[in-house]
Write a protein that binds this DNA or RNA. Structure first.
Lengths: 165, 165
DNA sequence: CCGCAATATCTAGCTTCCTCATCATGAGGA
DNA sequence: TCCTCATGATGAGGAAGCTAGATATTGCGG
C-alpha cells in the first residue's frame, strides 16, 4: 500500500485529502451563510437553479445535484415555504414543474456568491495560476471518471478470513 | 464574478467540483464496504485509530475527525458493540479512555484499505503522474490553508436590501 | 377510444450523522 | 479542602440522504 515513494504516499492520502478539503471548505462557507438559515443542500439548490437558467424541472435539478427525487422535494418544500423558489407547471407536461427564483432570492444568491468568492479567494491565495489550472484539469478529469456509474463490481475473493457477520 | 476567462470560470467551479468528487468518491467506496455494515463515519474512525497509533483518547480522535465528542461516542458505541474497537482506561487519567483495535478489526481494515486502493486506482487511471503530483501539491497547500481556523470574519456590510427574516 | 407502460412528483418511513445542552466523574491548582 | 476545568456519556432534535409505494399525466399500441 505505502511503498515509501513520496508520490505513492501522497496518492494514498488523496482521498482523505479531498474529503477533508471538501468538508472544511463547506464548513467555512456555511459559517458565513448560516445566518440566513441556509444549509448546504439548500444553497446548493438555489445556486444550481440560478446557474441552470431557471426553467429546469425537478428531475433535471435532482440529476445535477446528484440526489434522488424525494430528497429534492423536501429541500424545495423548504425553499418554497421560505418564498425563495417557485414551482410552476411546466408548459408542455402537466406532470412536471419548472423551478424559478423569486425576487427575494436574487439578493440572497448574490450574497452567497460573494461569500463563496471570498472563501475561494482566501483558500487559493498565493497559489500560482498555472499550478491551479493544472490541478483543475486533473480534477475535471477525475470528476468525469466518477460520473460514469461504476466501472465493474470486483469479484472480491475472500482470503483474509474476515466474515461479514 | 464570472469574467469569461476559462481559468476564472473553472475556479468558480472549483468548490463544487471538489465537493462532488468527494461525494462520489465516498459513495463508490461505501458501496464496496457497505456489506460489512460499515459506513463512512465508522470506517473513517477505524482507519484513523489504525493510523494514529492505537492509544489515542476519544478527545484526540474527535479532533482528528473534526467531529464533536457526542458524535464520536455513538460511533464508538457501535464499533465497540461490534467487537471492533476496545475502550481501555487511560493509564494516567481515569477520566480518559484510550482506543484500541481488536484482532477482529485488523483483517477488516485490510479490506477497507484494499477497497480504497482499488477505487483510487480506478479513479486515477490514465492520469499522468506529473499532473497528479502537481495537483496533489496544490491540494496539500489548500488543505494547509484550510487547517487554520479562520482568517478573519469579514464585516459584511449589507447593501443589497436582503434581511435574514 | 381504451388500456398500459413510462414518467414526474409527492408521501411515508427509515437511517446516518451531526449538533447543543446537560450531567457525572476525575484532575489539578489555590 | 474547595473550586474550576476536562473527559466522556446521555437526551433531544435537526438536516439530509435513501427506498418503496401512491397519484397524476403522457403517449403509444391496438
Amino acid at each position: 500500500m505505502r511503498d515509501g515513494s513520496p508520490l505513492a504516499h501522497t496518492q494514498w492520502r488523496l482521498g482523505i485529502l479531498i474529503a477533508q478539503i471538501a468538508r472544511r471548505w463547506r464548513a467555512r462557507l456555511d459559517q458565513r451563510i448560516a445566518e440566513y438559515g441556509l444549509t448546504e443542500a439548500r444553497w446548493l439548490c438555489l445556486l444550481t437553479i440560478s446557474r441552470g437558467g431557471e426553467g429546469m424541472t425537478q428531475k433535471d435539478l435532482a440529476a445535477r445535484l446528484l440526489i434522488e427525487g424525494p430528497t429534492l422535494v423536501r429541500t424545495l418544500d423548504w425553499l418554497e415555504a421560505e418564498g425563495l423558489v417557485l414551482r410552476r407547471e411546466a408548459p408542455h407536461d402537466r406532470r412536471a414543474k419548472t423551478l424559478h427564483l423569486s425576487a427575494k432570492a436574487r439578493p440572497l444568491i448574490q450574497r452567497i456568491e460573494t461569500a463563496a468568492t471570498g472563501v475561494r479567494a482566501e483558500i487559493l491565495a498565493g497559489i500560482p495560476d498555472a499550478d491551479l489550472a493544472a490541478c483543475l484539469s486533473v480534477l475535471e478529469r477525475v470528476a468525469t471518471g466518477l460520473a460514469v456509474p461504476a466501472p465493474a463490481p470486483p469479484p472480491e475473493e475472500a482470503s483474509d478470513g474476515y466474515r461479514p457477520a
